[in-house]
């Protein structure tokens, strides 16, 4: 069953007097409870797709449905509600609040939704229970991303949207973080969307959507995804 569907989605940006088509007639499904990787080089339309899935931008034409509900033309407030309740975001550069400690960084999203998970439990789940009172500046890159994952999951969202989650990490740390991300998503039965240019990550995904020059190049289904530990980074 599709958690999210793109149907003939087009996104154009105004550049000077002209227009640039960043996403051209994209049609695909994101399957519920599965890991989907959106893969492509720079300028392929990855970020545009991520912005549209995350409800951070509006499409020019086409339809986006979430659990069967069209979100293409909903109001600004409804779009915020969608991000608030449906999407958990994992950023490439963690985007934690420097003045809040680890537990506070998770707790800040707790009030955004009624069925939020326990922040302390989330911290424990990502293995940072001993770092609860530490500020982001006192944590390593891997710990920061684990914290970011805990924050994203704390809202108990339907979809975990990850923007290059290992992009700022070395390969060993990246692998650990990815493993945690996939495990956590499976444990909590979440739909995971990873937007990346790193082809190795695609090997762990259930579905891979290849983007090139703003178009869907191909969609691959992976019946036997590798375990993160098996991937050659």
């Amino acid at each position: 069953m599709a958690a999210l569907s793109f149907s003939h989605v087009v996104k154009e940006y105004k550049v000077g007097k002209g227009k640039v088509r960043a996403l051209d007639d994209a049609t695909f499904d994101i399957d519920a409870g599965k890991v989907t990787v959106i893969l492509g080089p720079s300028g392929s339309g990855k970020s545009t797709t991520l912005n549209l899935i995350g409800g951070m931008d509006r499409l020019s034409s086409g339809t986006i449905t979430v659990n069967g509900k069209d979100i293409s033309n909903i109001s600004e407030k409804a779009l915020t509600d969608y991000r608030r309740r449906k999407i958990g975001f994992v950023f490439q550069f963690y985007n934690l609040i420097p003045s809040l400690n680890a537990i506070e960084n998770i707790s800040i999203v707790e009030k955004m939704t009624d069925d939020a998970l326990n922040p302390a439990q989330m911290l424990k789940d990502v293995g940072l229970e001993n770092r609860a009172k530490h500020f982001p500046s006192e944590l390593s890159g891997g710990e920061l991303q684990r914290l970011s994952i805990a924050r994203a999951l704390c809202k108990n969202p339907d979809i975990l949207l990850c923007d290059e989650p290992t992009g700022a990490l070395d390969s060993a740390t990246g692998r650990t973080v990815l493993e945690l991300l996939v495990d956590m998503a499976r444990n909590y039965n979440k739909t995971v969307v990873i937007v990346t240019h790193n082809a190795s990550i695609a090997l762990c995904a259930d579905k891979v959507i290849h983007l090139k020059d703003g178009k869907i190049e191909r969609i691959e289904m992976n019946d036997n995804p590798l375990r993160v530990g098996e991937v050659n980074w």
């Binding site: 995350g54 608030r84 975001f89 950023f91 800040i108 809202k155």
Partner: peptide, 14 residues
């Protein structure tokens, strides 16, 4: 600004 933008992405209202 970046923190505010992050919070907006996370679903904070204006």
């Amino acid at each position: 600004y970046r923190e505010y933008a992050t919070l907006r992405v996370l679903g904070a209202y204006n």
